[in-house]
Simulated scan of single mutants.
Amino acid sequence: MTDSNTKRWAGALAGGLVAGLGITALLMSGERKSGEPSELAKLERAAADKLGLDTPPADQLPSAGEQTVIQGGHLILGLLAAAAYAASTDEDTPVVAGGLAFGAAFYVAMHWLVGPALGVKQPEWRADRATLAMHTINHLVFGLTTAATSRAAQHA
């Protein structure tokens, strides 16, 4: 792997982590404001139920330990997605086009295919417009952040 390619990969991973941390902050802030578990907490609990694990009551905010599992798993998923971006692009991939395509593909994969297939979330086509917009924007920003950070690191 060339030095430029190593930097591009490191930048993609850093971008995925930064974007994931930003979304984590938004989710946790939303929990504090609303007093209700985030959608991500609900997903984690649905997955835990599928595995036969005990979960807190549906309306209870996550404990610090549960938040660690929820947010840690989300950040790991973001890093894996960023690695997929780095593996499927090269140094000539346009930042905006590549980032938007990646973000959209990640959104479709997680919210339209994987989540419903695993039975941990409702199919996305049943979501209201506000939820669809929020999910789309979050994933597009994630894709753009990953692509831009990858490019910036490549040229650092």
Rank of each mutant, 00 (worst) to 15 (best):
S88I: 00
A64T: 10
M110T: 08
A87I: 05
L113F: 09
I23K: 14
A47W: 05
D128G: 09
G52A: 11
T149K: 09
A86I: 05
F102V: 01
G98I: 06
P94Q: 14
I70C: 04
A58K: 15
G20C: 06
K50C: 11
F142E: 03
A127H: 11
L140W: 01
H155G: 08
G11L: 09
W9H: 12
I70M: 12
I76H: 02
G98W: 04
A156R: 09
G52C: 08
M1V: 03
T89Q: 04
S38G: 06
L53W: 13
T55F: 06
I76Q: 05
A101D: 07
K121D: 13
F142D: 08
V95Y: 10
A14C: 11
H111N: 15
G103L: 00
L113S: 07
A64Y: 03
L53H: 15
A133K: 00
A101C: 08
A64H: 05
L80D: 02
G35L: 03
E36A: 10
M134A: 07
T131N: 06
M1S: 04
R126P: 00
M28G: 04
G16M: 06
F102R: 01
G72L: 11
Q71F: 02
D54A: 14
A82S: 12
M110A: 12
R129C: 05
A86G: 05
E36F: 03
G119N: 14
K42R: 13
T2R: 11
G143K: 09
G115E: 04
W112C: 11
H139Y: 09
F102Q: 00
G115F: 12
G22W: 12
R129D: 04
H139N: 09
V120T: 07
G30K: 07
G115Q: 06
A64D: 07
S4E: 14
S38M: 05
Y85T: 04
D128Q: 04
S29C: 05
G99W: 01
G119E: 15
D128N: 10
F102A: 02
M134T: 08
D54F: 05
D3A: 12
K50T: 12
P57N: 13
A148K: 09
A152Y: 10
G11E: 03
P116I: 10
V108M: 08
M1L: 04
L80C: 13
G72A: 11
A133I: 01
E36P: 01
V114I: 15
L51P: 07
L26W: 09
P57W: 09
A10P: 02
P37S: 05
G72T: 13
A97S: 09
S34I: 02
S34Y: 05
G35V: 09
G103Q: 01
S34G: 02
L144N: 02
E36V: 00
